[in-house]
Simulated scan of single mutants.
Amino acid sequence: MATLTQTAYYTRRTLKWGSFLVLFLIVFRWAWNGFITYWLAKHPPPPPPPTVAFGKLPQLQFPDQTKGSLTFKLETVTGTTPDLGDRAHVFFMPAKRANLLALERATTQAARLGFNLPPQKLTDTLYRWANATPLSTNLDLDIIYGHFLLTASWQQDPTLLDAPNLPNTTPAVIEAQDYLADAGLLPEDLKTGRTQVSFLRASANDFIPAPSLSEAEFVQVDLFRQDLPAGKVYTATPSAGLVRLIFSGNTNTGKRIVSLAYNYFPVNYDQSATYPLKASSQAWAELQSGQGYIATLPTTGNQATVRRVSLGFYDAPTPQTFLQPIYVFEGDNNFVAYVPALDSKWVE
């Protein structure tokens, strides 16, 4: 039978080695967790493959253009095109189809814009509404997709060139957004998108830039779709929004807006898929071989010096079924060009 002294001795040894064991397990667990974290950081598991949930996608349709004899030079910081990842999101754009209510809906929209007379049929989908007063004004509206062009014969009224009530930058944006909202034409991604205000003056039957508001006869407001976390949204002409309004300085309702181009088509941001990208170096080679779209030519010379390559999304001026990614090449003298970014095997 153990004595009290022996019991105390073995208890102390047990506590001593037990403490060492607990300490060892704590240190071992901490070291093991650190090793696992380091290993995963250096050897991350491969991401799941792109979902390609929409199957093969239609080719992007850029406006027709005649390409000049441009030469290209890459002058990025690294001297090469950047690695912008191996995949990107594609967003679904709901398609609209012809139906018996299309003309009725378009007539309601025209009335919201101040056109109440019966329209003239130009094509199966394009109709023209007209107002004779206070200015001769036409509204050409696609009854299926809803895009339209409103043009007023502002040249008929020389008093419009006297611009006592031209709005400055911020008031012009607010007025444009209020006008569109009242007409039911300001969806959230247009309301929260970029805006651009320009000052114009008349030159014969057209508009030319004015250096400041004090020298302007008209104010132009461009509204763009909101940019996405994965990239900026670009239109066919980078300086032109999906919606462009031109205001005169006359506050008469029928004379205030002398031009309105509306080319907005909705995007379903909740319906998206990921698709593999071609390498940016391949896109650069395609641009050099004439396969890209020149959004803005260099203002001088025939050489396009590219300083920046990024990933964006193309917002076409005509209906499309998907908002797709593009490589954007930007450089000297305002040069901008686009190349479709998706791997060609997923495009038809």
Rank of each mutant, 00 (worst) to 15 (best):
P340V: 03
D189A: 08
P167R: 11
F72K: 07
T299P: 01
N250K: 14
V243L: 05
R29T: 14
D270I: 00
Y275Q: 03
T169W: 02
W30R: 12
T11Y: 06
L245K: 09
T318H: 12
G254F: 01
T81P: 07
L103C: 01
L185P: 03
G34M: 11
S212F: 02
S214V: 09
Q109L: 15
R87T: 08
T107G: 09
A172R: 11
Q109I: 03
T137A: 07
S19F: 09
E217Q: 15
L166E: 10
K255Y: 00
N116V: 12
D86L: 11
K232A: 06
S310A: 12
P340M: 05
A183V: 07
L161S: 12
G312D: 05
L245Q: 07
L185A: 09
S310W: 00
P317L: 06
V221T: 06
S310F: 00
V336Q: 10
N250I: 01
V339Y: 03
E330M: 11
Y9H: 13
N302H: 12
P276A: 07
N165V: 02
H43Y: 14
P209H: 05
E188I: 13
G18P: 10
L23M: 12
V77D: 13
Y234M: 08
F148R: 06
T159M: 12
T274C: 04
R97W: 08
T107E: 10
D343G: 02
